[in-house]
């Protein structure tokens, strides 16, 4: 057992945990914060995305012991006094979900994007969410929700960036 101190959604917890315990399991099974789901075994789906010291991380791919001394924000820590954030409201209003399984991860990943880039293009939104899979929506309304939350109400966003020769887009563009 290893002793850890973690702040989750503003509350500090102290616990003895097995080193192999995943942060996702710690949140869900130990703290009862089941708002963070687990969708895969391969670190691909992003459903489990949380913020670890202010940056998005897949909580299934972090050991609870690695979060010792850190601050974790889950989707359950976003609303204040029952009041949803603008991004959460946008998912609701733009129909950015169907079953909702991917939604916590989508919201945490989108928060990350909007912090760095408050007015993204729709391509930038798609790239920022590339680590998050949705089996229901076809992504269209998810992208629309993120754009709406950034104040781009029509959901179409500014003109798309150019593609490079492979058809692959370069969001975090680095040029000579």
């Amino acid at each position: 057992m290893t002793h850890i101190t973690v702040n989750v959604d503003g509350t500090t917890y102290e616990d003895d945990v097995e080193p192999r315990l995943l942060l996702a399991h710690y949140l869900r099974d130990r703290l009862g914060l089941t708002g963070t789901p687990i969708g895969c075994d391969t670190s691909n789906c992003g459903a489990c995305t949380v913020e670890l010291d202010g940056a998005s991380a897949k909580s299934c791919s972090v050991l609870a012991v690695q979060a010792d001394g850190c601050a974790v924000t889950t989707v359950q820590g976003l609303a204040r006094n029952g009041e949803l954030t603008a991004l959460q409201r946008a998912f609701h209003e733009q129909h950015g979900l169907q079953c909702g399984y991917c939604t916590p991860g989508m919201i945490m990943a989108a928060r990350d994007l909007l912090r760095e880039n408050p007015h993204p293009t729709s391509d930038e939104v798609r790239h920022a969410l590339e680590g998050n899979l949705c089996r229901c929506t076809g992504y269209q309304n998810i992208v629309r929700a993120v754009l709406a939350a950034s104040g781009q109400q029509d959901g179409s966003g500014p003109a798309d960036r150019t593609r490079d020769a492979s058809g692959q887009q370069v969001t975090e563009e680095v040029t000579a």
């Binding site: 992003g46 995305t49 897949k58 990350d112 920022a128 680590g131 370069v170 975090e172």
Partner: peptide, 28 residues
């Protein structure tokens, strides 16, 4: 990806790293 020295002197590394995985994986 964001380091000014890497971008200035080893831009290839910054450009290739931007294609690795997704933002959450790249944070860690």
């Amino acid at each position: 990806i964001r380091d000014p020295l890497v971008r200035r002197h080893a831009g290839l590394l910054a450009a290739a790293t931007a294609t690795v995985a997704d933002p959450a994986v790249r944070h860690r």
